[in-house]
Design a protein around this nucleic acid. Structure first.
Lengths: 348, 348
DNA sequence: ATGAAAGCGCTAACAC
DNA sequence: GTGTTAGCGCTTTCAT
C-alpha cells in the first residue's frame, strides 16, 4: 500500500476541485483571504484536499514566503539536562506559535562553525545559541545579517554586538557557591571542571571567595574531566587520589552534570555526602532535586527569557535591548548539609 | 555591521565571478561535476563565493532535489533521558552523513497527529518515531507513501505494515525484572507506572512473574503517576502511604525516569535502598549508573539500530526486513542489592 | 568548457 | 469571485 505515489500538490487539489491553484492557496492558508472565495468553492477545495490527504509542501512555501516558521537550538550536548531543558522550553514556546524546532548539537568549535554556516543557508527564522560564541562571533554577525534572528544564551567574553545575550553573572555564581561552602566551615575546597584553565569566570569567582576568606586555591584540589557525568566522576576520583595534600572537604562542580558524577564516586568510595564531603553544583537543573543527596546548586532561569526574546525578534517586535542579565540564586538542598560544620580534620 | 543585506544567491556569485549560475552550481556542489570546469574559472567562483560569504539556500536546493538531507526524531519528551539519548545517537549518526536532525516533541496523541501531518509536508527525508504509533498508523502509512522513510522505535500493538519496527520484548522485560526481584526473596512488589491500566505489556510480564511464583498482584501496590521524575516520586509516595496492606519491599518502576523519583522519595522517607526496599527500573539509561544507589534496570540498545535502519531506508538500500527484535538484558547494579558481587567495571 | 532555460511547489500581485 | 502570471534560489538537461 505504501506505494511511492508522489505527494499531491496544490495543483492536484485545484484540478480535483475544479478551481485554480490560487483559490486553493487562498482557502487552505486559512487566513481571512478565504473570505473572498465563495462558500461552495471553499467546500469543494476542502473536500478535494481531504480526499487527497493534501499537505502543503513546507519547502516551497518557505522558499516563497522567505520564512520557515522554524527555529534551531544549538547546544553542545543533550546529555546535559540543562540543555535538554532549554530545548524543551523552546519546543513548548515554539509550539504555541506554530513554529517547529530544530536541534543541532555542536560539541566543538569546529562543529559550531559548521553548524552556523549551515544555518546561514536559510533553513530557519531564528537561532538560539546555547554554545560558546567566543570564537565565532563573526559568523554570528553574518547570520544575523542574513535576517536570521539570533539570541545567545550566556557568553564568555566578547560577544558580537547587536545580538541579544541572555547572561548570568558566572563569576558571581562561582563566588556565591564557594562562599556558601566557606560559610559552612569548609577550608579545603576542590574544584572539578571541564575547562583546563584557571582563567574562566566561574573559577575566578571561586578564587575570589577563597581569597576573601584568607584561603588559597590548591593545585591538588583542581581536577579536570569531560563535561559529562562520568567526566565528573573521573575528576572527582582524581581529587580523591591526590596524595600531595589533604583531601578536600568540599567540591565545587562546574555544573550539575559533573556534580552527579561526583556524588556517585564519593558514594562508591564510601565517603558520605554531606557529612564527609560537601558538593555544590551549578545550573539548577531539575534532576538536581532528585539526586541522593539532593544537590545544592546555583540556579538561574535563562531559558524562558531567551526563547521569549528570540520570538520577539522574529516577530519584528524590535527589541533594542541587547543585554539581559538574569539573576542567579543559591538553591540549598542536602548535598552541603545545612548547618555549620567543622570536621575535626579541618580544625587548626 | 549586521545590516539586513539580503543573503547572496548563486546568481550573485556568478556575476561576481563572471560566470553563469550553472557553472557556480557545478563548482560549488563539489561533486565530480566540477571537473568539467576549467581551473581558472573554478578559482574565480570559489573566490567570489568566499568574499560574499555565500551559502547555498537549503530550501531551494531541497525543493529542487526533492531531498532535504534531514531527518526528524519524534519523541514524547526530552526530559526522559532515554529519549535524549535517542536524539543524541541520531544526531551523531546524521552528522556523519551530512544530515541534520530535527526534533519534535509530541506528548499526546493529538500532538502526534499534528506532527505527522506536518511531516507529510515534505520537510524531511526520514522520520524516527519514538512515540506510540498505535492510534496513528494510518498517518504513518500516508507519510511513508509520500516517500518519507519511517522507522518506529518500539510499538505497542498494531503497527502499520511495511514500516520497520525496532522493538523489544516489553512483556519479557517486565517478567525479567520482576523475576529478579522475586529471586532475591521479595514477595510484596509494588508497581509504579504512568499507564493507568492493567493491560499494558510491561504489567502483564510483571504479573506473569508474580503468578509463576505463586504470588498475587495487590491493588494497593499499584500506583500511577506522570511519566517524570516527580511523577515517579508521587506514585511512590502513594505506595508508601497505602494503609490497606503491608508496605511492598520492592518497587518495579515503569522506567528509569520514574525510578529516579522513587529512589528520591524512599530516601526522603528514611527508607534505605536496597536494604529496606529494592527498586528496579527500565531502559538502561546512562543516568541509571549514576544514581545513588545505582539502578538495576532492564537494558536494551534500540537506538543505534533504529538510526542505522532509518539511514538504510533513506539511502534506498532496500530493506525488506520490517521487524527487528532487539534483545534485552538485566543490568544489575545496587538498587536491588543483589547478592552477586559485581566487578567495579560492571557497575557503571 | 560554459550557458540558457525549464521547473521543483508554493504565494501574491494584478488582471478580469 | 476567480484565474493568470511571475518569481523564491537552486539544479540540471540540452545546446553551443
Amino acid at each position: 500500500m505504501s506505494e511511492k505515489s508522489r505527494a499531491p500538490t496544490s495543483l492536484d487539489v485545484a484540478r480535483l476541485a475544479g478551481a485554480s491553484q490560487t483559490t486553493v492557496s487562498l482557502v487552505l492558508r486559512g487566513r481571512g483571504d478565504a473570505s473572498r472565495v465563495s462558500k461552495p468553492t471553499q467546500e469543494r477545495v476542502f473536500e478535494a484536499a481531504r480526499t487527497l490527504n493534501y499537505v502543503p509542501n513546507r519547502l516551497a512555501r518557505s522558499l516563497r514566503n522567505q520564512a520557515t516558521q522554524a527555529i534551531t537550538v544549538v547546544v553542545p550536548s543533550l546529555q546535559n539536562p540543562f540543555f535538554a531543558e532549554v530545548v524543551s522550553q523552546a519546543q513548548a514556546e515554539a509550539d504555541e506559535r506554530g513554529f517547529s524546532v530544530n536541534v543541532m548539537v555542536a560539541n566543538s568549535p569546529a562543529k559550531v562553525r559548521q553548524v552556523l554556516s549551515y544555518l546561514a543557508g536559510g533553513s530557519v527564522d531564528g537561532v538560539l545559541l546555547g554554545v560558546d560564541p567566543d570564537s565565532v562571533s563573526d559568523q554570528i554577525e553574518v547570520l544575523a545579517g542574513r535576517g536570521v534572528s539570533c539570541v545567545i544564551i550566556q557568553a564568555g567574553g566578547h560577544l558580537p554586538s547587536n545580538i541579544p545575550n541572555i547572561s548570568i553573572d558566572v563569576e558571581g555564581g562561582g563566588f556565591m557557591a564557594t562562599q556558601h561552602l566557606i560559610s559552612l566551615g569548609h577550608r579545603r575546597i576542590g574544584y572539578i571542571t571541564e575547562l583546563d584553565n584557571k582563567t574562566h569566570k566561574k573559577y575566578l569567582g571561586f578564587r575570589r571567595a577563597l581569597n576573601g576568606a584568607g584561603l588559597e586555591a590548591c593545585e591538588a584540589w583542581f581536577a579536570v574531566g569531560r563535561n559529562t557525568m562520568s567526566g565528573g566522576a573521573e575528576a572527582t576520583q582524581l581529587l580523591l587520589s591526590q596524595s600531595g595534600a589533604e583531601r578536600p572537604t568540599a567540591i565545587f562542580a562546574y555544573n550539575d552534570l559533573m556534580a552527579i558524577g561526583a556524588l556517585r564516586v564519593l558514594r562508591q568510595n564510601g565517603i558520605r555526602v554531606p557529612e564527609d564531603v560537601a558538593v555544590v553544583g551549578f545550573d539548577g537543573t531539575t534532576i538536581g532535586a532528585f539526586t541522593n543527596p539532593s544537590l545544592t546548586t546555583i540556579s538561574h532561569e535563562r531559558n524562558a527569557l531567551a526563547v521569549e526574546v528570540l520570538f520577539g525578534l522574529i516577530m519584528k517586535r524590535d527589541l533594542s535591548q541587547t543585554r539581559y542579565d538574569v539573576p542567579i540564586s543559591l538553591t540549598i538542598r542536602e548535598s552541603c548539609g545545612s548547618s555549620i560544620k567543622m570536621p575535626k580534620s579541618a580544625q587548626h
